[in-house]
Amino acid sequence: MAIEATTLERKAQAGTKPLLKVRGLEAWYGESHVLHGIDLDVGEGEVVTLLGRNGAGKTTTLKSIMGVIGKRKGSVSFGGQETIGLPSRAIARLGLGYVPEERGIYSTLSVEENLMLPPQVKPGGLSVAQIFELFPNIKERLRSQGTKLSGGEQQMLAIGRILRTGANLLLLDEPTEGLAPVIIDQIGATIRMLKQKGFTIVLVEQNFRFAQTVADRHYIVEQGKVIDMIPNEELDANIDKLHGYLGV
């Protein structure tokens, strides 16, 4: 059974200004009803993860927040503005940035062209020089084709590209999937640094041990609903329950 929205609000981290509120979010792929009433809150400056088994609806939740899914209903409020009726391009202009699991790197474009492709939607984005400081590998490969990069380099490019746009809420789908441990550590350090700079991040992640190193709270998604929320400081105490949720 999904937990009530009021429970989410009581359990949300104290002292954070609400930035994203999702209530009763439903979504479909064609005739397939995938989300059945997602409720979640994300405070300004928080890192929040969506955990759950494969097919639970985590990626669909990110796509629905971003408006890149065919049919959705419910409420998605960002900074107090309802976005459920807006197209994805209008949602992006509000300051939401989405990095899909497949990263979306264009094979016909160079690394530099991929990096500069998205328009700036708001002031406050990172400069190219700041992105190079975060991800020096990108600077070294500027003339390479985007898909000639390693998986880790493509992930860095995908994140760096969004940071340039001025988005202040980042939706990251499986950023560590298939990456070497040293690259995972770098992605983790980047997420923690972005949090310190005031970015808000919603993260879909299968590796809950990695999620534990970066997140403030964890929502558990099952069969298209949020069924629990565990603060990060309580994760170890609830590890058996989490294993049950995730089928570990």
Score class of each variant (00 low, 15 high):
R164Y: 08
S127E: 06
E140C: 00
L163K: 08
Y98I: 11
K71R: 13
E102P: 00
G67I: 08
L51Y: 09
H36Q: 12
G57H: 07
E133T: 12
G97L: 04
V214T: 00
R89M: 07
L242Q: 06
G146M: 03
E101C: 11
L203N: 05
L96S: 05
K21Y: 08
L163F: 01
A167K: 15
H218W: 07
S64D: 01
D216N: 13
D39M: 07
L157I: 13
G188H: 06
E4R: 13
L62C: 02
K195S: 05
V111P: 03
E177M: 11
I105A: 00
I159P: 03
A14W: 14
T147L: 14
Y219M: 10
L194P: 04
D216T: 10
L40D: 08
D39L: 08
T190R: 08
S127I: 09
A167D: 01
F78A: 04
D236Q: 15
V202G: 06
A189Y: 10
L86D: 11
G45K: 14
G247L: 12
K241Q: 13
T108N: 12
M1F: 13
N137L: 15
L20M: 02
L142C: 04
S77T: 11
N168M: 12
G244C: 07
A237N: 06
A180N: 07
L35Q: 05
M193V: 09
Q212S: 13
M66H: 06
E102G: 03
V204N: 03
S64W: 04
A215P: 01
V226E: 00
N114P: 02
I69R: 05
S88V: 11
K11Q: 11
S88A: 15
T59W: 05
V42R: 00
S150R: 02
N232G: 14
K17E: 13
G104F: 04
V47K: 14
E46Y: 07
L62Y: 02
R209V: 12
V42T: 03
F132M: 15
G152T: 09
P123E: 06
S32D: 08
L8H: 13
D41E: 15
G37M: 04
R72F: 02
H243G: 09
Q155A: 09
L115W: 04
